[in-house]
Design a protein around this nucleic acid. Structure first.
Length: 124
RNA sequence: UCAGUCGGCUGGAUGGCCGCCUGCGGAUGCGCCAAAAGCCUCCGCGGGAGGAAAGUCCGGGCUCCAUGGAAAUACGGUGCCGGUUAAUGGCCGGCGGGGGCGACCCCAGGGAAAGUGCCACAGAAAAUAAACCGCCCCGGCAUGCCCGGGGUAAGGGUGAAACGGUGCGGUAAAAGCGCACCGCGCUUGUUGGUAACAACAGCGGCACGGCAAACCCCACCGGGAGCAAGAUCGAAUAGGGGUGACAGGGGCGAAAGCCCCAGCCUGUUUCCAGGCCGUCACCCGGGUUGGUCGCGAGAGGUGCUUGGCAACAGGCAUCCCAGAUGAAUGGUCAUCCACGGGGGGCAACCCCUGCAGACAGAACCCGGCUUACAGGCCGACUGACAAU
C-alpha cells in the first residue's frame, strides 16, 4: 500500500463516490490498473490549529496501518478526510467506522459493476 | 508570618506493544564489459519540535535582479546623551519629566520667537488679546435696582487649560506699580561631567498657554525582491534571448549625409550620455508547487576564566545537537504525578469518577520585539507586624 501524494490524484478522488461516518469521510476511486492501493489523508484548516490537525492525521494514519491494512484493495485510490469528531472518537470506534465505510463503498461498486455486466448482456 | 517589587528556571514521569523520518557502518540484490556513483531490502549504532517553533513587526546573513554620471526633488523610517552589536526602531548605563511610604515602575522625550491650522462643551474672553457681573472716580437730573464718560483686572463664575503665586507697601479703586521670598526665562558667567545635563552666581519685572500622534521644519538613515530566492536534470512546437546586416515620418540635398518630429526604458524632474521599436540570417536555449541540489559547523551550544557597573567583548577547554516537503519527530495501553467533581474520616489521608493535562508543531538560517500560556520551583530586594 502506498501514500497518495499528488494534488491531481486528490482532485480525481474528490469526484468519486464517498461515504461519511461519524469519525471521518472516505472517498474511493477505481483506477485503470491493478497496482497497489493508495491512501491519502485530508485535514482542513477548519478543524483547528496545526497541533490539532497533526493529531487527527496521525490517528487516521495509525488506524489504517494497524487495524485496516487488508481492507484496502489493489487498483483503488482512497482519500480519508478528517472531521471534528476524529480527535474525540476512541481508537476502536475510529477503526470500525472506517471499516464500515469501506465495506459500503466496495459493495456499491461491485453491484454497479454487476449491473453494467448484465446491462451489457441484454444489449446486443 | 503577611502584603508587594524585580529577575531567572521549568513546561508532566516511567514502562509494554506496534510504527515513522534521518546520519554513519555493514550485507544481499539491481545497475555495468569491469569498477564507481546511485537505487531497493535487511541488520547494527546514533539523532529526531518550542519557549514562544506562533504573529511575520524590525535588523542582518545568503541568493538573484537592477545599478552610466551629476544635481534637485519625492517617498519611507528614526528622533534626550553615551555605550554595545554583524545590524536595528533591540539591549545596557546615565540625564530629564511623572507616579509610588518604599523596593521599583511608566514616558513617540528634537523644533511651537520659520509659517499655516486646531483648541469641543461651558465661559465675557481660548491668544497681535479682551472686559459679563463687580470695584472706583467724574458728570447729569427724572434722585433711581437710573443714565453717560473714564479707570481697573483685586474679587465672582466657566473650563482640561484664563497671560505667574504668597505677603507687605501702595492707590480713588487697582495693577510687578515697588519690595521680599518662591516660580519662570536668558545665544551671561563659573564649576563638575565625554555628553544629555546639574549646581552656584549674575541679569531680566515676567516676556514665551496647549497640540508637531494636524500639516510642517531640522538632523540622520534607506536600491528591489525573496528559498515558490537561485542552480541543475529531461521531449517537441510555439514563444524567448544574443549577434550581424538592412530599416521609422517630414525637410534640405544629385548622393553621402545633416536637421527636425517623435514614442518607450534606466523611480520622478532637468542636463549630458546610452539603448530599444520592423525584416532576414546564424547561434543560444527550455515554461512547470515534477526529481535533485540549495539544506545546516553556526554572529553554534556548554563549562571555566579575564576586562567591564552592565549590555557585551576576549581567551581556554569541550561537544556535534532535527532536516520533513500532501510535510517524519508518532499511535495505543497501563501505572504514577498534578487538576476538576462526588463520597467517607476530627485529621493525616482513603475510595470512586472524568474523550481531564496550559499556550501551542520546525519549513533557508540567525539576533531582537510583540502576543498566548495550566501548574510548579528558585533567588534578590521593599514595607508592615511579631520575636530575639
Amino acid at each position: 500500500m502506498e501514500r497518495l501524494l499528488l494534488r491531481k490524484d486528490f482532485l480525481a478522488a474528490a469526484r468519486s463516490p464517498s461515504r461519511a461516518v461519524k469519525a471521518c469521510v472516505v472517498q474511493m476511486r477505481v483506477r485503470e490498473d491493478q497496482a497497489a492501493a493508495r491512501v491519502g489523508f485530508t485535514v482542513t484548516k477548519k478543524l483547528g490549529n496545526a497541533v490539532k490537525r497533526n493529531r487527527i492525521r496521525r490517528r487516521l494514519k495509525e488506524a489504517v496501518r494497524t487495524g485496516l491494512y487488508d481492507e484496502f484493495q489493489p487498483g483503488h485510490d482512497y482519500v480519508i478526510i478528517g472531521r471534528a469528531a476524529t480527535d474525540g472518537r476512541c481508537f476502536a470506534a475510529l477503526v470500525s467506522d472506517i471499516r464500515s465505510a469501506l465495506d459500503t463503498l466496495h459493495t456499491q461498486t461491485r453491484s454497479r459493476a454487476a449491473a453494467d455486466i448484465t446491462k451489457g448482456q441484454e444489449k446486443p
